Computed example of a mutant assay.
Amino acid sequence: MSAAIDDFLAMLAAERGAAANTLAAYRRDLEGAEQLVGQLDTISSERLGKVAKAWAEFAPSTIARKSSALRQFFSFLVDEGHRNDDPSHALPRPLPRRPLPKILSHAEVDQLFSRAESDAGTNSPARVRMLVLLELLYGSGLRATELVSLPVSAVPRDAPFLTVTGKGGQARMVPVSNRAKQAISKWLALSGGNSGYLFPSGKGHLTRIRLYQLLKELAVRAELDPSKVSPHVLRHAFATHLLEGGADLRVLQTMLGHADIATTQIYTHVDSARLVSLVNERHPLAERGTSD
């Protein structure tokens, strides 16, 4: 494979702070393209255009991602003086529609919490842990990986915040409700607090796969369709319900750890009715009434 790919990935890691998973995804896309059409650092635009046929069976979103990786790579080669031309104009340009996130209603979230709180009332460590996981997914909007890998040191003492390390190693502070703090205290007392992780398992921490399984099991006990419940769906519910309650989009961006506010804006679709009502009721022109 091209040594230029290694140089490009090193740049992403050093200058953009790209996470390991992101770097691995870029490598797969770039090396996969090289297997299809040959060395990318010397390829012609005519040869590069052949990837469109090879990618024909992929979803538009997949093609867009692969094309984006290649465009960034060729831009890097030009910037570094490794190429005088950028052949990326030959790449396909699909226009994928970003799917809207799955959303849980307030009633469905209430069902989950009612079941989790009832289960935790037995003082079973596993059930108390489940309540804490649910509190932090829906109450703080954490990603699955962020949640399962939380160190005990991230738990707040006096301040109502958790310090979370998100994508790209970026740290941020997220709010923790009083009820979540109470559940965490109960869990720490039951778990013994002998691990460096808030949710220890074996020699490490709870896995993302196990977190998914636990949520599905909770959904079944709460008499909800388990296919509707996942860590990401609860993160979506956190964002959606905050926006419905009047949260500022920039504040929401910070809490979710989004680098680009365009990512956060997807949640605005859920509140279109409220926004229309807000304009009709609060806009200065609303007081002027309508003309006959």
Rank of each mutant, 00 (worst) to 15 (best):
H205L: 00
H241V: 05
V176Y: 13
I63F: 05
N194Y: 14
H232Y: 12
H232W: 04
T22V: 04
T263V: 06
T163P: 01
D271E: 08
S140L: 09
L147E: 00
K181E: 11
P226S: 11
F73V: 07
L137P: 01
K228S: 07
E34S: 04
T122C: 01
V279C: 08
T290G: 05
N194W: 13
S2D: 05
L133H: 11
A262K: 13
R27L: 03
T263C: 10
G202R: 13
L142R: 05
L70G: 01
S277G: 02
L142S: 10
Q72H: 10
G141I: 00
A171L: 15
E15S: 08
V164A: 08
A237G: 13
R115E: 14
L243R: 04
V109W: 01
R115V: 06
T122W: 02
A52S: 13
L218C: 07
S291E: 09
D41L: 00
S114T: 14
L285C: 06
G245R: 11
S195R: 06
V148D: 07
G49H: 09
Q170N: 01
R129S: 03
P87V: 03
A120L: 10
L112Q: 08
S44K: 02
L100V: 09
R93N: 12
P87M: 00
G49L: 09
T264C: 15
L12E: 03
T268G: 11
L112N: 02
G245D: 05
T290C: 07
S45A: 05
Y267K: 03
E223H: 05
